[in-house]
């Protein structure tokens, strides 16, 4: 029973990362119709920022979290302006450019951090909360899940309660119709990649003290993000968040009671199954013309 409850706790903590890391991919694809393969590397840059500025040079952790968000948002905006915008009418071109960025960011990370072992960031929040003698939540993870949840709720509020948020969703539903309302698709693309990159930077900064930091860490992030995006419905933001929570719980339970390998394989199988049975994802709608 304790193991069961602990597993739910583990799963919920994980779901925050999954959602935060996936949402940017969904947002950028929805608005710009580009699969940003460098999205995992944006998470990686966020983690490296914390490692370099906080762990190596002693700046306060929270400051470096904000710095990571700003830096990664900047990278996202540069990608939009110089790669995705010129490639606007060529989704394959955008994708190939993003793969180029993926390698560039990996090389820069290697240059900055050097080769060798994965980097480690000592947790700024030490200790573990123990509930009823058996359920354990490290404070660092508690902090991460609270910040992730706050960021996701803010994003949700922005997308459902503000005109700019509706405009972002309108562009992802119908670019032309949005332009006919006077919505600048270029501006909305900047908002989408800016918000998506900010979330990726935040995810990386929150993960930094909890994971192995290396130039290749984006790989696992993007695989998870793909599964979450496809299961949740390509371009569906609520779908992505729900899929992130479900997938995190699923993965955690299967890992606990069977094995991690089976968890990942069955995750990919579910993705394939969704593609066959319901290609629009659990929250996606069939496009009707």
């Amino acid at each position: 029973m304790d193991l069961f409850i602990q597993t739910i706790v583990n799963g919920i903590i994980q779901s925050g990362f999954y959602a935060l890391a996936s949402i940017g991919l969904v947002l950028v694809f929805g608005v710009m119709r580009v699969v940003n393969f460098a999205h995992g590397e944006l998470v990686m840059v966020g983690a490296y920022t914390v490692w370099l500025v906080h762990a190596q040079h002693g700046a306060p952790y929270l400051f470096t979290v904000v710095l990571a968000i700003i830096l990664v948002t900047g990278i996202g905006l540069v990608m939009e302006r110089f790669l995705f915008r010129p490639m606007m009418n060529d989704p394959l071109g955008g994708l190939i450019c993003s793969i180029g960025v993926l390698f560039i960011l990996q090389v820069i990370a290697t240059y900055v951090g050097g080769e060798g072992p994965s980097k480690q960031v000592p947790p700024p929040f030490e200790g573990t909360m123990v509930i009823m003698d058996s359920i354990r939540i490290p404070y660092q993870r508690l902090f991460s899940i609270c910040v992730s949840a706050a960021a996701l709720v803010t994003l949700w509020y922005f997308l459902t309660r503000s005109t700019l948020g509706w405009a972002v969703r309108a562009v992802s539903m119908d670019r032309e119709a949005a332009a006919l309302q006077g919505i600048s698709t270029v501006r909305i693309s900047m908002v989408a990649i800016g918000v998506g990159a900010a979330m990726a930077g935040l995810a990386g900064a929150l993960m930094a003290p909890l994971t192995n930091i290396n130039p290749h860490m984006g790989h696992n992030v993007i695989i998870t993000a793909f599964i979450v995006t496809i299961v949740g419905g390509i371009g569906s933001l609520p779908g992505a968040v729900i899929a992130a929570v479900l997938y995190a719980l699923f993965h955690t339970f299967v890992t606990t009671y069977f094995s991690g390998t089976i968890a990942t394989i069955s995750g990919l199988l579910i993705m394939v199954l969704v593609l066959i049975v319901r290609p629009t994802g659990i929250m996606g709608h069939r496009v009707s013309e």
Binding site: L3, G11, Q14, T252, T255, T256, G260, T261
Partner: peptide, 17 residues
């Protein structure tokens, strides 16, 4: 004996198990 793959990013479930 828990033998895991190289795709693990979170060891919480394995260790709990």
């Amino acid at each position: 004996t828990n033998l895991h793959g190289f795709d693990v990013t979170d060891f919480a479930p394995i260790v709990s198990s």
